[in-house]
Nucleic acid binder design. Structure first.
Length: 481
RNA sequence: GGUCCCGUCGUCUAACGGUUAGGACACCAGGUUUUCAUCCUGGCAACAGGGGUUCGACUCCCCUCGGGAUCACCA
C-alpha cells in the first residue's frame, strides 16, 4: 500500500502572494491532485512583528481565484488542525520537551547583543557563524524566557554525506551548515525551522515543496528529524523565479506584482496557471499550452528545472491572449463581468456577445475591454486628429475626404447592414471612387468608430447598426465642412 | 570568506554519447488584396571557457569563469 500524498503550502501572513510564491503552491497542489491526495494550507505566523493584517484573507482569496482549492486549512479546518501556527504553541512545547529530555535542546542564556557580537567576531575572521562554537559552558535550565536551542550532532552527516532532493537530485552536505539553531524564541513562539518540522510530521505531510532559500538549511532539518525520530518526508526544492534581468529572485521589494492583481486585470486563471507551470517545468516534449487537467495528469517533480527561470511578462501576455482566443464566447462572457466600460452597463447581453466575438482575438486581458470596445456603446465626439495622424489620410485634402465620405454615405444609406451587403457595397465604393482600401476604409472607420483601429469594418458596422453608423457619418461630415 | 546549487538562442526551454543543436515568446521581413489583432510563411539568434574519458561529448569527469542561495530570537 502506498502512502497517501499530502502536500502543503505554508505562507506567512506578511502580505500578498507573488508569482514565485504561488507557483510553489501550484506545484504542491498539482502533486496532490494528481495522486488523489490532499493539499493543505497552513499559516506560518510565528513572527508577530512581521505580520500584516489581512494577509491570510488575501492569501486565501488568491488561492481561491486561481482555483487552487485546499482540503484542510485555517478557515475550513481538518482533522490535523489547527492550521495556524500561533494556535499550536502547546504542540511545539510538547515536542520541545521531548528534545530537552533527550538532551537535545538547551537554553541559550546570551542576550541578542552577545550573540550578535559572536557573529561579528566570526564574520571578521571570515568564517561562517556557528552558535555551537560559542556554547555557554554551563547553560541554565530552560525556563521559557530564554531561547531554546537545538543540540545538533553535526558529525552524523560526515558518514552519510548525500541526500536526495526530488528536484535537485543528490545534494552533498557540509557539516559547516549544521548548527544549534533556535527552536523556540524567547517570546515563546517557535521558529520556522522547528515548527514546520513538527507540523509536517503531525499533519502527515508526505512531500515538502518549498523554495530554494531553504536549501542550505536542509542539513539542519535532517539532523532534527533524526533527533526527533521523525521519518523525513520527500523534500523538493524549487529554484527561484528570477525578476527581470535574471540576477535576483522575484521579490516584493523589487516590485513583484500581487497575483491577485493579475486576476483583477482580467487574466484567465487557466492562463496564469499555464504560465507559472511552464516557467521551470516541461513535460519533455515541445508542448507549451496546458489545460489545468492536462497539468494534473502530466506534472512531475523530476522534470522541474534546477536553474531559476526569469519571469517574462511578454510570454504571460501571449499565453493569456492565447487562452482567451481558445475560450468559447459564452464562457468568456462570464469571465468578462465587471470589465466592460461603464457605458455598457444597460446593454443587452446579446449585443455584448457580438462585440466580444469581434474583439476576443485581440484581447490579451480583460482590462483592455473598455478601450477596445468603448465605441460600441457610446458615441465618441468627432476627433479630427485621427485623420491627421492616419498615415494614409494625412496626405489628403479635407475637402476631398469630405466628398469621399459623402459619397460613401449615399451608398451605405441603401444598405440593409448585413455583413454581406456591407462588404459588397464597400467594395463597390472602392471601384466607384478609385481609392485604395487603406484610404476609403480608414475614413469610414474613423467616422463610425472614432478610433484608429477596430475589428473588420463590415463586421463592426453590422454590429453597430445602421442608425448609429449613419448618424456618426453625418456628424463626421458636419465637422469636416 | 565558508557551505551549497546552477550554467543551451535576448527570454522560457527540448535533445538513450551519434541531430544541419529542435520548439515557443520577443524581434525583423513577407502574405492573408483596409487599420489593429489573429492566422500563415520565412529570417535572426545558443551548447560559458579550457582540459580530459570516448571511434564519437550539449550530454560523463576535472579545473576555471560566471550567476544564484545561505551563514537571524525571518520565513
Amino acid at each position: 500500500m502506498t502512502q497517501t500524498i499530502r502536500t502543503r503550502f505554508c505562507p506567512s501572513p506578511t502580505g500578498y502572494l507573488h508569482v514565485g510564491g504561488i507557483r510553489t503552491a501550484l506545484f504542491a497542489w498539482l502533486l496532490a491532485r494528481q495522486n488523489n491526495g490532499q493539499f493543505i494550507l497552513r499559516i506560518e505566523d510565528t513572527d508577530q512583528k512581521r505580520e500584516v493584517a489581512g494577509s491570510t484573507d488575501h492569501i486565501i482569496k488568491s488561492l481561491h481565484a486561481l482555483g487552487l482549492d485546499y482540503d484542510e486549512g485555517p478557515d475550513i479546518g481538518g482533522k490535523y488542525g489547527p492550521y495556524t501556527q500561533s494556535e499550536r504553541l502547546d504542540i511545539y512545547k510538547k515536542w520541545a520537551q521531548k528534545l530537552i529530555d533527550k538532551g537535545r535542546a538547551y537554553a541559550d542564556p546570551y542576550t541578542p547583543e552577545e550573540v550578535r557580537a559572536f557573529r561579528e567576531e566570526d564574520q571578521k575572521a571570515k568564517r561562517p557563524f556557528l552558535y555551537r562554537n560559542h556554547i555557554h559552558k554551563e547553560p541554565p535550565l530552560w525556563d521559557g524566557s530564554q531561547p531554546l536551542r537545538f543540540k545538533s550532532y553535526p558529525k552524523i552527516y560526515e558518514m552519510d554525506e548525500t541526500f536526495e532532493d526530488a528536484v535537485m537530485g543528490k545534494l552533498s552536505i557540509g557539516t559547516e551548515t549544521i548548527d544549534d539553531f533556535i527552536l523556540i524564541k524567547s517570546d515563546g513562539y517557535p521558529t520556522y525551522n522547528f515548527a514546520h518540522i513538527i507540523d509536517d510530521a503531525e499533519m502527515e505531510i508526505s512531500h515538502v515543496i518549498r523554495g530554494q532559500e531553504f536549501l542550505a538549511s536542509i542539513p539542519n532539518y535532517l539532523n532534527l528529524y533524526d533527533a526527533l525520530d521523525i521519518k523525513r518526508p520527500v523534500i523538493a526544492t524549487m529554484p527561484h523565479i528570477l525578476g527581470l534581468g535574471g540576477n535576483k529572485k522575484l521579490s516584493k521589494r523589487d516590485g513583484a506584482k500581487d497575483v491577485l492583481d493579475y486576476v483583477r486585470e482580467g487574466y484567465l486563471p487557466e492562463a496564469l496557471i499555464n504560465f507559472m507551470a511552464t516557467l521551470g517545468w516541461n513535460d519533455g516534449t515541445e508542448k507549451e499550452i496546458f489545460s489545468v487537467s492536462e497539468l494534473i495528469k502530466d506534472f512531475s517533480l523530476n522534470r522541474i528545472q534546477k536553474s531559476g527561470a526569469q519571469f517574462d511578462e511578454q510570454r504571460l501576455l501571449w499565453m493569456s491572449g492565447y487562452h482567451i482566443r481558445e475560450t468559447p464566447v459564452d464562457k468568456l462572457m462570464k469571465c468578462t463581468e465587471g470589465f466592460w466600460p461603464d457605458e455598457a452597463q444597460d446593454t443587452d447581453p446579446k449585443y455584448k456577445i457580438q462585440v466580444l466575438e469581434l474583439v476576443k482575438e485581440r484581447l490579451k486581458f480583460f482590462a483592455e475591454l473598455p478601450e477596445l470596445t468603448m465605441f460600441f456603446f457610446t458615441d465618441l465626439p468627432v476627433d479630427l486628429s485621427l485623420i491627421q495622424n492616419n498615415k494614409q489620410l494625412k496626405k489628403y485634402d479635407i475637402h476631398h475626404l469630405h466628398m469621399l465620405l459623402k459619397q460613401s454615405k449615399e451608398s451605405l444609406e441603401q444598405s440593409d447592414f448585413t455583413v454581406a451587403d456591407l462588404t459588397l457595397r464597400l467594395n463597390q465604393l472602392l471601384e466607384q471612387t478609385g481609392e485604395k482600401p487603406g484610404v476609403l476604409f480608414s475614413l469610414i472607420r474613423i467616422a463610425t468608430t472614432q478610433s484608429p483601429s477596430s475589428p473588420g469594418l463590415a463586421d463592426t458596422m453590422a454590429v453597430l447598426g445602421k442608425d448609429r453608423c449613419m448618424e456618426r457619418i453625418a456628424n463626421q461630415l458636419e465637422s469636416m465642412k
